[in-house]
Design a protein around this nucleic acid. Structure first.
Lengths: 340, 340
DNA sequence: CTGAAAGCGCTTACAG
DNA sequence: CTGAAAGCGCTTACAG
């Protein structure tokens, strides 16, 4: 910066003013400074800026690179932060690197607020963290939180999927659960509520915990295949579970959607696989990101009480769902239970 | 830091020395300083450290959060950098955020070197960038580079897959290409070389470019299904292509591996899906990461000439490959061509 | 082993 | 609109 000032015969603060687009410089000077900066290949030193700036305008986000939906949200948060004039530091957590390490890194950068994507931390741990710095948890299971929570309406989303299947004529609708997922409880409740609403018997397929969601889906398929009859439709807790489910069913010779309709959740890349073409609940990552960043900013600006924000969902209908082909006489167990 | 010094009645530099584990403090003093730091919840300011430090020991990495293999490598690079006493800044690129923006961010942090994961930049662009800062490209297509390149032996890996299939008795082995992939040319050459080596006729399935690799796999499946006879085995350029291929084949009623054996590349999560259980070439992300970080460090320490490092690969055999079931009389086109 | 001083590259007052 | 001065929180010499 000194080089630019010397090169032009002006003071360094003036250069600083121009480069930050602040009032206090003539249009001509601005032009000259900008040109000189470009010529000299000037690149502001972020560390120096961060150090001196009163208003750091810097957010931190913790995410798991190996989780698809987290990646989609990170991209949108990057965008949302930029639009509001904030920079963003990314910290990765993984099996090789604890979330605590990632948080320490961001604390070292003196972030104004931390955005935790699908954090595996407990509510108590996040409450403790939020005493040091404003915290926004995206897709967290909730509870008595002193931090902000942003999540999509998982119960509503699963309800939409059930409504869609019922409208197609399905009555025998199973649910593939995923207990270790942050939003799983809300989604399961959505399934149970929707089935009750339609006066249908719920059929939750329990999966032994652990491993990835695809594995849970595959296990669920095995459980269903071991029964006397398959349900006519399966609602999966997310797209990855649906992928594992469909893959295993296909391999067993079951036709999708002719024999079984399947729905997912996330509208992820997996859902768009042409052989899957999965009907899926869409939680808009852009909306989640906007709300997360807005929460962070209003906390930074002084809001005290924690906020919970629920973003709307929609159902993207693809070809993995269709009308059930079985006749009423072939109705399987759970429906028969309802009509003794 | 001043608080700790005042609290203990020592000078600030002494505190700095202790916290950096440098010589120049008595064991008792170290103990007292460490305890005080913990009590006061001291968190070093990374911006101040970066600014003042002569030896920044800071790397930057650009990656695409929505690409699975990139995510795996990032995790390992994080680890490898930490083991060598370097910190790492992550910069995300995506459809929403250009790689140039990500690079500028890292340049602003004054990284000692940049590691580009599966960069979409051309060799010329990376050459230009490497004039400003040491650059290591992981999984780049190569060419006349003035920067370092680290990649797995894609040609060898595909060769291993072909060898495996030939050993099982396959002679009619198709290849699903993926032109837009960084390593695709090397892999295709590996296929062609291996087929020549075994005196078999190559059968490269051309895919119209664009879209994700799963889509390429699905399209390839459609092409194969339109033929009079399927090959007995298909080698896919990566796991995602194999996933799309297998999904579409399964949906068409083809049994895997009974009718068609399939191999992938990356040994990714997709390969381990229980319904896929894909035989896949493994490129060790930890080795790629180690080599990338080593390249970066030796460049920082003064090495001038660019280096290309090829990491070894291995074949992970799973249940997607087996002996061909067809009799010689049913051999399909490409094999028949060889025996007129 | 310890302390006083300088400075990293910026930004932020404040006086001209 | 412009310039001289101070300081962000550290680290790095260098003299005791």
């Amino acid at each position: 910066m000194g080089d630019i000032a010397a090169h032009l015969g002006v003071s360094r603060p003036l250069v600083s003013i121009v480069l930050r687009d602040q009032p206090g410089a003539s249009p001509e000077t601005r032009e000259r400074v900008r040109r000189a900066a470009k010529e000299l290949g000037y690149q502001p030193d972020r560390a120096a800026q961060m150090l001196r700036r009163k208003d750091r305008k810097h957010l931190g986000a913790v995410f798991a690179p190996d989780e698809g939906p987290s990646a989609a949200i990170i991209e949108q948060i990057q965008l949302a932060a930029g639009e509001r004039g904030y920079s963003l530091s990314l910290a990765a957590r993984s099996d090789l690197r604890s979330e605590a390490t990632a948080v320490d890194e961001l604390l070292g950068y003196r972030c104004d607020a931390l955005i935790m994507i699908s954090s595996p931390m407990t509510t108590a741990e996040l409450n403790y963290l939020s005493e040091r710095v404003p915290v926004v948890a995206v897709a967290h299971r909730g509870g008595r939180t002193s931090f902000d929570v942003v999540h999509s309406a998982g119960d509503v989303g699963i309800g939409l999927a059930v409504d869609h299947l019922v409208a197609l004529g399905h009555r025998d609708i199973a649910y593939v659960d995923g207990r270790q997922m942050p939003d799983s409880r809300r989604r399961r409740q959505g399934y149970l509520a929707a089935m009750t609403r339609h006066r249908l018997a719920p059929d939750v397929v329990e999966i032994r915990k652990g491993g990835y969601m695809e594995e849970a889906g595959s296990q669920a398929a095995s459980v269903l295949l071991a029964r006397k009859a398959l349900p006519t439709a399966v609602v999966a807790v997310n797209d990855h579970a649906a992928l594992g489910l469909v893959g295993t069913l296909l391999r067993a010779g079951v036709s999708i959607p002719r024999d079984v309709s399947v729905t997912g959740y996330d509208d992820s890349r997996a859902a768009r696989l042409s052989f899957l073409d999965l009907t899926s609940v869409r939680q808009d990552p852009a909306q989640l990101a906007d709300q997360a960043v807005d929460c962070a900013l209003s906390r930074i600006e002084g809001r005290r009480r924690p906020r919970e924000h629920v973003t709307p969902v929609s159902l993207v209908v693809r070809s993995s769902t269709t009308t059930p082909r079985r006749s009423p006489a072939q109705l399987s167990r759970s429906s028969r239970t309802r009509h003794p």
